[in-house]
Design a protein around this nucleic acid. Structure first.
Length: 327
DNA sequence: AATAGGATCAACCGCCCAACG
DNA sequence: CCGTTGGGCGGTTGATCCTAT
Protein backbone atom coordinates (compact mmCIF):
# COMPACT_ATOMS: atom_id res chain seq x y z
CA UNK A 1 0.00 0.00 0.00
CA UNK A 2 1.44 3.33 -1.00
CA UNK A 3 1.51 6.49 0.97
CA UNK A 4 -1.52 8.69 1.15
CA UNK A 5 -1.00 11.83 -0.92
CA UNK A 6 -0.34 15.01 1.02
CA UNK A 7 -3.47 16.58 -0.41
CA UNK A 8 -6.39 15.79 -2.63
CA UNK A 9 -4.98 16.64 -6.02
CA UNK A 10 -8.37 16.62 -7.65
CA UNK A 11 -9.74 19.40 -5.49
CA UNK A 12 -6.76 21.75 -5.24
CA UNK A 13 -5.68 24.17 -7.91
CA UNK A 14 -2.55 23.27 -9.82
CA UNK A 15 -0.35 24.93 -12.38
CA UNK A 16 0.99 28.46 -12.50
CA UNK A 17 0.29 30.78 -9.62
CA UNK A 18 -1.77 33.92 -10.16
CA UNK A 19 -0.62 37.27 -8.72
CA UNK A 20 -3.58 37.12 -6.31
CA UNK A 21 -2.47 33.76 -4.97
CA UNK A 22 1.07 35.02 -4.64
CA UNK A 23 -0.14 37.97 -2.66
CA UNK A 24 -2.25 35.80 -0.37
CA UNK A 25 0.65 33.50 0.37
CA UNK A 26 3.15 36.29 0.76
CA UNK A 27 1.06 38.29 3.17
CA UNK A 28 0.12 35.25 5.20
CA UNK A 29 3.69 34.05 5.63
CA UNK A 30 4.95 37.54 6.38
CA UNK A 31 2.27 38.06 9.01
CA UNK A 32 2.05 34.62 10.56
CA UNK A 33 5.08 32.68 9.42
CA UNK A 34 4.72 29.17 8.15
CA UNK A 35 3.71 27.88 11.54
CA UNK A 36 5.89 24.88 10.92
CA UNK A 37 3.10 23.21 9.01
CA UNK A 38 2.87 23.70 5.29
CA UNK A 39 0.06 21.21 4.94
CA UNK A 40 -2.28 23.29 7.07
CA UNK A 41 -1.07 26.62 5.73
CA UNK A 42 -3.09 26.88 2.50
CA UNK A 43 -6.36 26.45 4.36
CA UNK A 44 -5.45 29.10 6.89
CA UNK A 45 -4.23 31.44 4.18
CA UNK A 46 -7.36 30.95 2.11
CA UNK A 47 -5.53 29.25 -0.71
CA UNK A 48 -6.88 26.32 -2.66
CA UNK A 49 -3.43 24.85 -3.11
CA UNK A 50 -1.49 21.86 -1.93
CA UNK A 51 0.77 22.62 1.02
CA UNK A 52 3.79 21.37 -0.82
CA UNK A 53 2.99 23.65 -3.70
CA UNK A 54 2.80 26.61 -1.30
CA UNK A 55 6.09 25.71 0.25
CA UNK A 56 7.76 25.46 -3.15
CA UNK A 57 6.27 28.72 -4.34
CA UNK A 58 7.45 30.53 -1.24
CA UNK A 59 10.94 29.05 -1.17
CA UNK A 60 11.65 29.34 -4.86
CA UNK A 61 9.89 32.51 -5.79
CA UNK A 62 8.24 34.63 -3.13
CA UNK A 63 10.90 34.70 -0.45
CA UNK A 64 12.14 38.28 -0.17
CA UNK A 65 15.86 37.60 -0.62
CA UNK A 66 15.58 35.58 -3.82
CA UNK A 67 17.79 36.41 -6.79
CA UNK A 68 16.85 35.30 -10.28
CA UNK A 69 19.24 34.95 -13.18
CA UNK A 70 22.35 37.04 -13.64
CA UNK A 71 24.78 34.46 -12.39
CA UNK A 72 28.25 35.83 -11.85
CA UNK A 73 31.52 34.19 -12.81
CA UNK A 74 32.15 33.66 -9.13
CA UNK A 75 28.88 31.82 -8.74
CA UNK A 76 29.67 29.70 -11.79
CA UNK A 77 32.93 28.73 -10.15
CA UNK A 78 31.27 27.77 -6.92
CA UNK A 79 28.62 25.70 -8.64
CA UNK A 80 31.12 23.86 -10.79
CA UNK A 81 33.53 23.25 -7.99
CA UNK A 82 30.84 21.90 -5.73
CA UNK A 83 29.22 19.84 -8.45
CA UNK A 84 32.63 18.43 -9.11
CA UNK A 85 32.96 17.49 -5.48
CA UNK A 86 29.53 16.37 -4.36
CA UNK A 87 27.46 15.91 -7.47
CA UNK A 88 23.90 17.05 -7.89
CA UNK A 89 23.14 17.93 -4.32
CA UNK A 90 21.56 21.18 -5.24
CA UNK A 91 20.36 22.18 -1.83
CA UNK A 92 23.91 22.10 -0.49
CA UNK A 93 25.24 23.92 -3.51
CA UNK A 94 22.50 26.52 -3.30
CA UNK A 95 23.22 27.05 0.37
CA UNK A 96 26.63 28.38 -0.61
CA UNK A 97 25.05 30.94 -2.90
CA UNK A 98 23.08 33.59 -1.03
CA UNK A 99 19.74 34.30 -2.62
CA UNK A 100 19.83 31.26 -4.87
CA UNK A 101 17.50 28.32 -4.58
CA UNK A 102 18.24 24.71 -5.28
CA UNK A 103 15.70 24.72 -8.08
CA UNK A 104 17.27 27.76 -9.66
CA UNK A 105 20.79 26.38 -9.44
CA UNK A 106 19.63 23.06 -10.79
CA UNK A 107 17.91 24.70 -13.75
CA UNK A 108 20.91 26.90 -14.38
CA UNK A 109 23.24 23.93 -14.40
CA UNK A 110 21.01 21.80 -16.60
CA UNK A 111 20.29 24.48 -19.17
CA UNK A 112 23.46 26.54 -19.35
CA UNK A 113 26.40 25.66 -17.23
CA UNK A 114 26.53 21.99 -18.17
CA UNK A 115 26.81 22.84 -21.85
CA UNK A 116 29.46 25.39 -21.16
CA UNK A 117 31.39 22.85 -19.16
CA UNK A 118 31.00 20.20 -21.79
CA UNK A 119 32.37 22.49 -24.46
CA UNK A 120 35.34 23.34 -22.29
CA UNK A 121 35.92 19.70 -21.55
CA UNK A 122 35.97 18.76 -25.22
CA UNK A 123 38.30 21.60 -26.00
CA UNK A 124 40.58 20.55 -23.20
CA UNK A 125 40.59 16.95 -24.36
CA UNK A 126 41.54 18.00 -27.85
CA UNK A 127 44.42 20.05 -26.53
CA UNK A 128 45.61 17.26 -24.32
CA UNK A 129 45.37 14.71 -27.07
CA UNK A 130 47.34 16.73 -29.55
CA UNK A 131 49.96 17.66 -26.99
CA UNK A 132 50.62 14.20 -25.63
CA UNK A 133 50.57 12.44 -28.96
CA UNK A 134 53.15 14.97 -30.04
CA UNK A 135 55.25 14.20 -26.95
CA UNK A 136 55.01 10.47 -27.46
CA UNK A 137 56.19 10.63 -31.02
CA UNK A 138 58.97 13.00 -30.10
CA UNK A 139 60.31 10.82 -27.30
CA UNK A 140 60.14 7.57 -29.12
CA UNK A 141 56.66 6.70 -27.92
CA UNK A 142 57.13 4.26 -25.09
CA UNK A 143 53.46 3.61 -25.32
CA UNK A 144 52.81 4.05 -21.63
CA UNK A 145 50.13 6.40 -20.71
CA UNK A 146 51.27 8.90 -18.19
CA UNK A 147 50.77 12.38 -17.00
CA UNK A 148 47.08 12.00 -16.54
CA UNK A 149 45.47 15.29 -15.91
CA UNK A 150 43.66 15.49 -12.64
CA UNK A 151 41.27 18.02 -13.95
CA UNK A 152 40.03 15.65 -16.61
CA UNK A 153 38.65 13.58 -13.76
CA UNK A 154 39.09 10.27 -15.45
CA UNK A 155 41.66 8.46 -13.40
CA UNK A 156 43.99 6.01 -15.02
CA UNK A 157 43.33 3.53 -12.23
CA UNK A 158 40.27 2.52 -10.33
CA UNK A 159 38.01 2.02 -13.30
CA UNK A 160 35.28 0.85 -11.00
CA UNK A 161 35.05 4.32 -9.59
CA UNK A 162 32.63 6.86 -10.81
CA UNK A 163 33.78 9.44 -13.23
CA UNK A 164 33.73 12.37 -10.98
CA UNK A 165 33.33 11.83 -7.28
CA UNK A 166 35.75 9.32 -5.90
CA UNK A 167 35.50 10.00 -2.27
CA UNK A 168 33.40 8.31 0.31
CA UNK A 169 32.75 10.77 3.06
CA UNK A 170 33.20 9.93 6.67
CA UNK A 171 30.12 9.17 8.71
CA UNK A 172 30.56 12.50 10.37
CA UNK A 173 30.45 14.28 7.09
CA UNK A 174 27.68 14.90 4.67
CA UNK A 175 24.61 12.89 5.33
CA UNK A 176 24.96 10.28 2.64
CA UNK A 177 27.60 8.84 0.43
CA UNK A 178 28.92 11.02 -2.29
CA UNK A 179 27.32 9.83 -5.42
CA UNK A 180 28.31 9.85 -8.99
CA UNK A 181 27.84 12.95 -10.94
CA UNK A 182 27.00 10.79 -13.86
CA UNK A 183 25.31 12.91 -16.45
CA UNK A 184 27.64 15.68 -17.35
CA UNK A 185 30.17 14.35 -14.93
CA UNK A 186 33.16 14.80 -17.10
CA UNK A 187 31.99 18.19 -17.99
CA UNK A 188 31.66 19.10 -14.38
CA UNK A 189 35.04 17.67 -13.58
CA UNK A 190 36.67 19.57 -16.32
CA UNK A 191 34.87 22.74 -15.51
CA UNK A 192 35.39 22.36 -11.83
CA UNK A 193 39.07 22.08 -12.33
CA UNK A 194 39.22 24.84 -14.82
CA UNK A 195 37.37 27.09 -12.46
CA UNK A 196 39.32 25.95 -9.53
CA UNK A 197 41.00 29.10 -8.45
CA UNK A 198 41.07 32.67 -9.56
CA UNK A 199 44.70 32.52 -10.51
CA UNK A 200 44.24 29.61 -12.85
CA UNK A 201 41.21 30.71 -14.73
CA UNK A 202 43.40 31.66 -17.63
CA UNK A 203 45.49 28.56 -17.36
CA UNK A 204 43.45 25.45 -16.85
CA UNK A 205 45.53 22.49 -15.85
CA UNK A 206 46.32 22.61 -12.19
CA UNK A 207 48.09 19.51 -11.22
CA UNK A 208 49.14 16.36 -12.90
CA UNK A 209 49.95 13.11 -11.28
CA UNK A 210 52.16 10.60 -12.83
CA UNK A 211 51.05 7.20 -11.78
CA UNK A 212 53.76 5.11 -13.28
CA UNK A 213 56.42 6.90 -11.36
CA UNK A 214 58.27 8.16 -14.37
CA UNK A 215 59.31 11.74 -14.49
CA UNK A 216 56.30 13.82 -15.30
CA UNK A 217 56.00 15.51 -18.60
CA UNK A 218 56.22 19.24 -18.70
CA UNK A 219 52.85 20.86 -18.95
CA UNK A 220 51.59 21.73 -22.39
CA UNK A 221 52.80 25.08 -23.61
CA UNK A 222 49.52 26.77 -22.92
CA UNK A 223 49.62 25.67 -19.33
CA UNK A 224 53.13 26.85 -18.77
CA UNK A 225 51.91 30.38 -19.03
CA UNK A 226 49.95 30.04 -15.88
CA UNK A 227 50.75 28.80 -12.48
CA UNK A 228 51.97 25.35 -13.21
CA UNK A 229 51.22 24.16 -9.79
CA UNK A 230 52.26 20.74 -8.90
CA UNK A 231 53.01 17.48 -10.45
CA UNK A 232 52.29 14.63 -8.14
CA UNK A 233 54.28 11.66 -9.10
CA UNK A 234 53.26 8.23 -8.02
CA UNK A 235 56.14 8.09 -5.59
CA UNK A 236 54.87 11.14 -3.78
CA UNK A 237 51.52 9.59 -3.12
CA UNK A 238 52.33 7.28 -0.28
CA UNK A 239 50.35 4.13 -0.33
CA UNK A 240 48.88 4.59 -3.76
CA UNK A 241 49.94 1.21 -5.00
CA UNK A 242 48.24 0.67 -8.25
CA UNK A 243 44.81 1.45 -7.05
CA UNK A 244 45.19 -0.19 -3.66
CA UNK A 245 43.40 2.75 -2.19
CA UNK A 246 41.36 3.42 -5.20
CA UNK A 247 38.58 4.78 -3.09
CA UNK A 248 40.86 7.41 -1.66
CA UNK A 249 41.76 10.76 -2.98
CA UNK A 250 45.15 10.08 -4.39
CA UNK A 251 44.40 7.20 -6.67
CA UNK A 252 40.90 8.37 -7.19
CA UNK A 253 41.98 11.78 -8.27
CA UNK A 254 40.53 14.19 -5.78
CA UNK A 255 40.81 17.62 -7.19
CA UNK A 256 43.10 19.53 -4.91
CA UNK A 257 41.34 22.65 -5.78
CA UNK A 258 38.25 21.64 -3.96
CA UNK A 259 37.92 24.43 -1.52
CA UNK A 260 34.56 23.44 -0.18
CA UNK A 261 34.95 19.92 1.04
CA UNK A 262 36.48 20.81 4.38
CA UNK A 263 33.56 23.00 5.18
CA UNK A 264 31.11 20.38 4.04
CA UNK A 265 32.85 17.84 6.16
CA UNK A 266 32.72 20.13 9.11
CA UNK A 267 36.44 20.37 9.62
CA UNK A 268 36.96 23.98 8.83
CA UNK A 269 37.78 25.89 5.73
CA UNK A 270 40.67 26.24 3.39
CA UNK A 271 42.43 29.52 3.59
CA UNK A 272 40.55 32.20 1.81
CA UNK A 273 41.88 33.80 -1.27
CA UNK A 274 43.91 32.22 -3.96
CA UNK A 275 44.58 28.66 -2.97
CA UNK A 276 47.34 28.32 -5.46
CA UNK A 277 48.89 31.68 -5.02
CA UNK A 278 51.24 32.84 -2.36
CA UNK A 279 48.68 32.38 0.35
CA UNK A 280 47.72 28.89 -0.66
CA UNK A 281 49.42 25.71 -1.71
CA UNK A 282 52.11 27.25 -3.84
CA UNK A 283 54.72 27.80 -1.11
CA UNK A 284 54.21 24.28 0.11
CA UNK A 285 54.41 22.74 -3.28
CA UNK A 286 57.65 24.43 -4.06
CA UNK A 287 59.19 24.40 -0.63
CA UNK A 288 62.65 23.02 -0.05
CA UNK A 289 61.35 19.93 1.61
CA UNK A 290 59.54 19.01 -1.57
CA UNK A 291 55.85 18.94 -2.20
CA UNK A 292 53.72 17.53 0.57
CA UNK A 293 51.92 14.41 -0.38
CA UNK A 294 48.21 14.35 -0.82
CA UNK A 295 48.04 12.25 2.27
CA UNK A 296 49.93 14.82 4.27
CA UNK A 297 47.66 17.54 3.05
CA UNK A 298 44.66 15.45 3.87
CA UNK A 299 45.97 14.87 7.35
CA UNK A 300 45.69 18.56 7.96
CA UNK A 301 42.28 19.10 6.51
CA UNK A 302 40.59 15.82 7.23
CA UNK A 303 42.13 14.45 10.40
CA UNK A 304 39.03 12.52 11.30
CA UNK A 305 38.50 10.78 8.03
CA UNK A 306 42.07 9.77 7.40
CA UNK A 307 41.72 6.38 8.96
CA UNK A 308 38.96 5.55 6.55
CA UNK A 309 40.81 6.74 3.53
CA UNK A 310 44.10 4.98 4.02
CA UNK A 311 45.15 1.72 5.50
CA UNK A 312 46.51 1.80 9.01
CA UNK A 313 50.02 1.17 7.77
CA UNK A 314 49.76 4.15 5.48
CA UNK A 315 48.52 6.51 8.10
CA UNK A 316 50.81 9.48 8.18
CA UNK A 317 51.09 12.56 10.25
CA UNK A 318 51.54 15.85 8.53
CA UNK A 319 55.01 17.38 8.69
CA UNK A 320 55.52 19.89 11.44
CA UNK A 321 54.22 23.26 10.51
CA UNK A 322 52.30 22.14 7.49
CA UNK A 323 48.89 22.31 9.03
CA UNK A 324 49.64 25.59 10.68
CA UNK A 325 50.78 27.14 7.44
CA UNK A 326 47.66 25.93 5.72
CA UNK A 327 45.22 27.10 8.27
C1' DA B 1 4.28 35.84 -41.59
C1' DA B 2 4.22 31.08 -40.31
C1' DT B 3 6.31 27.27 -38.48
C1' DA B 4 9.54 24.10 -36.23
C1' DG B 5 12.82 23.26 -33.00
C1' DG B 6 15.44 24.63 -29.07
C1' DA B 7 15.95 26.94 -24.63
C1' DT B 8 14.25 28.26 -20.33
C1' DC B 9 12.17 27.81 -15.95
C1' DA B 10 8.17 27.21 -12.82
C1' DA B 11 5.86 23.55 -11.06
C1' DC B 12 4.96 18.84 -10.10
C1' DC B 13 6.11 14.01 -8.78
C1' DG B 14 7.76 10.55 -6.04
C1' DC B 15 11.01 9.12 -2.89
C1' DC B 16 13.65 9.46 1.47
C1' DC B 17 14.21 10.64 6.15
C1' DA B 18 13.48 12.48 10.70
C1' DA B 19 10.16 13.45 14.17
C1' DC B 20 6.55 11.98 16.76
C1' DG B 21 2.93 9.34 19.03
C1' DC C 1 9.94 -0.83 17.86
C1' DC C 2 6.62 0.44 14.47
C1' DG C 3 3.51 3.15 11.72
C1' DT C 4 2.25 7.73 10.33
C1' DT C 5 3.14 12.28 8.99
C1' DG C 6 5.27 16.32 7.06
C1' DG C 7 9.43 18.45 5.29
C1' DG C 8 12.95 18.29 2.09
C1' DC C 9 15.21 16.85 -1.93
C1' DG C 10 16.47 15.65 -6.80
C1' DG C 11 14.56 14.35 -11.18
C1' DT C 12 11.30 15.32 -14.63
C1' DT C 13 7.63 17.59 -17.14
C1' DG C 14 5.24 20.90 -19.74
C1' DA C 15 4.04 25.66 -20.85
C1' DT C 16 6.02 29.57 -22.68
C1' DC C 17 9.40 32.22 -24.96
C1' DC C 18 12.99 32.74 -28.40
C1' DT C 19 15.35 32.00 -32.67
C1' DA C 20 16.28 30.17 -37.11
C1' DT C 21 14.44 28.88 -41.46
Amino acid sequence: MGRAPCCDKTSVKRGPWSPEEDELLRSYVQNHGTGGNWIALPHKAGLNRCGKSCRLRWLNYLRPDIKHGGYTEQEDRIICSLYNSIGSRWSIIASKLPGRTDNDVKNYWNTKLKKKALAMHQQQQQQEHSYYSQQQHGSGGRGRRRGAVVSACTPPRAPQQSQCAYMEPSPASASSAVTTASAGGDAACSFGAMYSSPSTMQAPALARYDYDGAAPLPPPPQQQQGSALAEFSHAQVHGAHDGAISGGWAAGGLALDDMFLPELLGVGEFPTGDLFGTGGFAPLLHADRGAPSLQELSACYFPNVQAEMWTAADHVKPPAGLCHSLT
